[in-house]
Design a binder for these strands. Sequence first.
RNA 1: GGCUCCAUCGACUAAUGGAUAGGUCACCACCCUUUCACGGUGGCAGUACGGGUUCGAAUCCCGUUGGAGUCACCA
Length: 482
Amino acid sequence: MSVRVRFAPSPTGYLHVGGLRTALYNYLFAKHHNGKMILRIEDTDRSRFVENATENLISMLEWAGIIVDESPTKGGEFGPYIQSQRTNIYLEHIHILLNNGKAYYAFDTAEELDAMREKLQAGNQGDYRYDRMNMKNSITLGMDKAIELINAGIPYVIRMLVPDNEEIIFKDIIRGEVKISSNEVDDQILIKSDGFPTYHLAHLVDDHLMGITHVIRGEEWLPSTPKHCILYKAFGWEQPEFAHLPLLLNKDKTKLSKRTGSVAVEDFREKYIKDAFINFVALLGWNPTGDREIYDFQELIDLFNLEKVNKAGAVFDLQKLDWFNFQYLQKLSPEEMGKMLNEELLKIEKTGYDLNWLNKVAYALRERVHFISEIPNYAPYFFNDEIEYEQDYLEKHWNADKKNIILPLVFELEKCKDFTHDELHSTTKKYCEENGIKMKEVIHPLRLMITGKSIGAGMFETMELIGREKCISRMKKFLEKE
RNA sequence: GGCUCCAUCGACUAAUGGAUAGGUCACCACCCUUUCACGGUGGCAGUACGGGUUCGAAUCCCGUUGGAGUCACCA
């Protein structure tokens, strides 16, 4: 049987990085096995629906390189792929359960449920499950009475009937065998009073109908998996394989949330190189063994296996992601770097640069920044003619003596024919040798006069990029002032 | 609180009962050097604790401790 997996988010606004990793693992697993991945939108909670969330979800997945085989926009033979368009299917299926006695109607109000839970809490602690035999439902009232209430327009829900005293055992690919007594499982609501199914019913019916072979989802679903096992059995369906992924964590080891920083994929898209981000995320909770860190997308697909997914959660620590970004930055061509730099400059409304020149600037600085986006701030002297001088640097490398050394050099440099790195370098070297001074004695003042900053790329390379005219005028302006 | 899951350097992880517990990020030092970086070399740092099984345990078992997830007419 060929592998079919799914990613089934709720359209609640944005794609969470934890969700992206789940989607990634699903995708890697599917493609590794030449299988299919589907995208299904779980929008049965009408109150949480957010406009355009589905489009956003898809565009984030596509940015990440996750191209699903079947989806609301792409279609497929198992559609529709939006749960709110499948309500009739759920209703059909709930009747199977109603008819075989595996589900029942319940009429309790929110207040009555609250009262029940309070009572249970007062009695035996830790047990808040639906008290089936002491509430208003078709078991205590009888089916005739239940039908009567329904016909009278009384709101109702449909709950699953959990069998007593059964041991539920299921196999998880990552965690092995998990056991739990059915006495711990609640009579979960399957159909809400608004007629929509809950997640538990809807996802399970869909997974079955859509031929899903492996359910790969976050660990937060582990506690409700026994419910799903009971449901599969109630329907008489074979259950899929389960794999519950370890959670992505905040620094304090709690489930990753936006509390401590951004978790929306769109925010990462703005800052990081896609391949670096994917590489980083893929290695959070999984490792193909060995000492390697850098893997391209195809290698991830080739190597991925669920058996080597870790059990413990992984702290989502951006420090290493920055390093990955640096590594991938070095692999880009000057043209790619220049393009990114141009986009950054557009954001701060700096336009009109020669693209070829931007390529060179970005390339020259590639080893000094983790992100292309740092460049405008790291080396403003490429884009502003107004130079700000670093005070410490100025004090350290400038005084009356320096002026006497530098002045003749400026004239020599002005005479350079091509104003290229090589010529500037040899001219300066010659000058230093003739006057018995060290190169660094003059390079720092040059850097100071032209860039104002103590850090940056090689000075002659920088001068070539800034150009003769600007370099000379900056030096002269500085010399007049100081 | 009940239930379930989990536990290797600060972080990500490797080591499928057998070497001095390996690599990467971060941090520190040194080298290179034209500043800052890159790069190179080295360093710091870990099997939560206690039992057991075994010739041998990070690894298997039990217990303890700690952490997390979950317990909705949300997914």
